[in-house]
Design a protein around this nucleic acid. Structure first.
Lengths: 357, 357
DNA sequence: AGCATCGCCTGAACCGGTTCGGACGGACCG
DNA sequence: CGGTCCGTCCGAACCGGTTCAGGCGATGCT
């Protein structure tokens, strides 16, 4: 009775065994009306007996649907090691497509040229019904590319170019505002920002949000350093900030992710600063280790799983709407990320301590 | 000239435009011999003009190949956040399948029942040509399930049950031996081991390797704690070890991954120990932050990207061999992981320091 | 000249589903 | 008793490729 000892049953086998035609079997499988109860029962029994399951490929061909959504990520392998976003995000996608046997098809590519090619291949090979567009960049050419390819798309956050695709957004601007408000309330006047590469939209938006929030709170315009989300980048940026002469040196640093923030705290401590007395540090993302380092990290808790879930849900809706549907689906806004205050932030020391290296 | 304004070209369109039959076009596309150069040129031109790309679904149907490999992971979303294995591993898979437009189809499931169902769906829906089996457990039922389903399989490490599937193995036993040799050379006599859940084969094998290696080096049989690879678990296990009375308390702890190890160092330092003087710590995996914590972590550098690459390569070979091929492919062994000695290991203090909490 | 050989290409069958026009038969009605 | 109507089911066409037996014309050989 194992499945391997015989060729897999097809809809024709089921029809023969049930004494009906293929068409009828198909009706039953997609439970459409117009089949007599007795016939339906015979078909169901035959399906059961034969352990029949329709072939995805054949369905895909006749329905011209792939029952899969795509995700293309351009990242160098090295940065994947510490990526805390991507895995739960994909798990969320999975959750979001629901129990429809819809799968997530994944493509990692090395650079942005390969990225376009990957999207092309996905679209033209009809491997997916739609894609989600992550890691949006400024003037992102992929938005137009996908519109051209006619591939239903959901973007992660709203692009800075016109796009008719729905966006699933999380409120990183609000998150940054919470961070700055927290620091301002503690009494900080000079803050610095260590962000990601500015060609990424989210990096730029967070940077802008930090600029605006510091100004709104009446803080001094702070120093900005653009890093690359890696621990090494965070360490280097921190050295740079601590090398500033005391009058400019920040009493609090806001980092673009927790990896850089943790590396930053270690650098600061190694240079003799006592945290959070001599320097407050805030991360972004709430990585698992962040609660376990010393001092434990004040950070913003994002929820990539929920993000993925919502993105998938939106995309599935979009696909089912069909391409000729005129109504442009509206953007979805996730719950605002929450600031998690831990031990790495405190009021600034009254008189800045000279570092004793 | 955009692709979206007209229905996508099919092989029939190409044939018509080139003035040949579908069959000939197909020959050209798969560059098979028996087509006159002039005809071939006409077809190629037509393909170019129409921007034709064959439909993956139609190919899949007539070739009964899916051009995709599957990966099913049973992990709770919470642990994905800090997972440093999975993302680079999938990127490696991607790399390993090569430029064949073969994709990686991903399924995240919550529990092990859902896992079996996911494999069934993948096999019976013919969505994938083969799967890689990760996170092997003791007496893993999936090995038999996949054999039953007749789905080409590659396992990550060799299962403890009979399996005719090739395994792609990395030498974690050798890695643990290096760790213990390092600690023994430093003069440690009492080591402890904080591993993962023992139902995972790799956790058990590393534990066994540690037992054997400590015995071989003439060390005292050490305390074992089974944790769960999370920071919290690592912290708890560390407390447990440091609560032992001095005569039993280890001078060095070997952790099953870096997350637990980092959490462990923080716990130890918080309890007043000075590292590495009072306690040596070794991790496993070389997470990105491990070089940036204090003391920087001695650990074992594994290479999930290479592992994925090799697994995909092996699986693709296996698929192309065909199901009736008698020769069982041999196991592949990756380069041994390398011990990275950093600052968290040192000779034990001559007289154990009492902790000053 | 007659015939085998060969290279090139066509046409139809096939993969495994979905869809739909229309055939069939029974109930209902006038 | 003849005609409608409705529920049920069949059969064929179709999705877009691949494969292969066979046709056809040109060439080589005796």
């Amino acid at each position: 009775m194992t499945a391997s000892d015989r060729r897999r049953a097809t809809i024709t086998d089921v029809a023969r065994r049930a004494g009906t035609s293929k068409g009828t079997v198909s009706m039953v499988l997609n439970d459409r009306p117009g089949v007599a109860p007795a016939t339906r029962a015979r078909v169901v029994a035959a399906v059961q007996d034969l352990g029949f399951r329709p072939s995805g490929a054949a369905r895909a061909l006749s329905l011209s649907r792939a029952d899969a959504i795509g995700l293309v990520l351009a990242r160098v392998p090295a940065t994947l090691r510490s990526d805390s976003f991507y895995a739960p995000f994909v798990a969320g996608l999975e959750q979001g497509v629901g129990h429809a046997d819809c799968a997530v098809l994944l493509r990692f590519v090395a650079d942005e040229a390969a990225e376009a090619a990957a999207y092309r291949a996905l679209a033209e090979g009809r491997r997916v019904d739609g894609v989600v567009l992550a890691d949006l960049r400024c003037d992102d050419p992929r938005v137009d590319l996908l519109a051209d390819l006619g591939l239903p798309t959901v973007t992660l956050n709203r692009p800075d170019v016109p796009s008719s695709a729905p966006a699933v957004c999380h409120d990183d601007v609000g998150a940054v505002e919470q961070v700055v408000a927290h620091l301002a309330a503690l009494g900080h006047r000079r803050t610095a920002y260590v962000g990601g590469p500015l060609r990424y939209l989210h990096a730029r938006r967070r940077r802008d949000a930090w600029r605006r929030a510091t100004r709104d709170h009446g803080l001094a315009p702070g120093v900005e350093v653009s890093a690359d989300f890696t621990a090494e980048g965070g360490a280097r940026a921190t050295h740079e900030l601590l090398d500033l002469r005391p009058a400019q040196r920040p009493t609090a640093v806001v980092y673009g992710n927790d990896t850089m923030a943790v590396a930053g705290t270690v650098v600061a401590q190694h240079r003799g600063l006592v945290l959070p007395r001599d320097l407050s540090v805030v991360g972004f993302d709430d990585g698992e280790l962040s609660a376990y380092v010393r001092p434990s990290l004040t950070t913003v808790r994002t929820d990539p799983f929920a993000w993925g879930e919502q993105a998938a849900r939106t995309l599935v809706d979009l696909v089912h709407l069909g391409p000729d549907h005129a109504a442009v689906p509206t953007d979805v806004h996730l719950d605002a990320p929450r600031l998690v205050v831990r031990d790495s932030t405190a009021p600034p020391a009254a008189h800045p301590i000279e570092e004793t290296r």
